[in-house]
């Protein structure tokens, strides 16, 4: 049986407009053979979750550089849970201090990629979570 095509939402919550990283990851993941949807900047947690569910994605990648990750990332995980979509794997990236990572992991963010992470690492993570 052929492998299932994985769908990934790359989203930018909060107000920060630095989308270089998000766009790079979106494009690189496309080149790796995934189907990628990008939301654009300034997305609320609600709109990200609704989008993830409608698009029936397998992963949501959040990118944030303003430092609001401790508030916004967990909120998205919670909303997914509220909508019976906790099977969607959430990962994050951006300017995230090492010391915040355990907190985010505990809140259900499955992986956190800090600046400079090679795309290969993200792909390995995605493949390790494949569940079909």
């Amino acid at each position: 049986m052929k492998e299932k095509k994985l769908r990934i939402l790359i989203a930018k919550p909060g107000l920060d407009g630095h989308d270089r990283g998000a766009k790079y990851v979106a494009r690189a993941l496309k080149d790796e053979g995934y189907e990628v949807i990008y939301t654009g900047i300034r997305q609320t947690a609600e709109s990200i979750v609704k989008t993830a569910i409608q698009e029936d994605v397998d992963f949501v990648g959040l990118s944030l550089l303003s430092g609001a990750h401790n508030e916004l990332f967990p909120k998205i995980v919670e909303l997914l849970k509220e909508n019976d979509a906790e099977d969607i794997v959430v990962f994050g990236g951006g300017v995230i201090p090492e010391e915040d990572i355990p907190f985010l992991r505990e809140k259900g963010i499955q992986a956190v990629f800090t600046p400079g992470t090679p795309i290969k690492t993200i792909v390995d993570f995605i493949e390790s979570q494949r569940n079909d």
Partner: peptide, 11 residues
């Protein structure tokens, strides 16, 4: 404002 959640005083 609701849009400010998480961002006040951050950057």
């Amino acid at each position: 404002d609701n849009m400010s959640i998480g961002e006040v005083g951050k950057v």
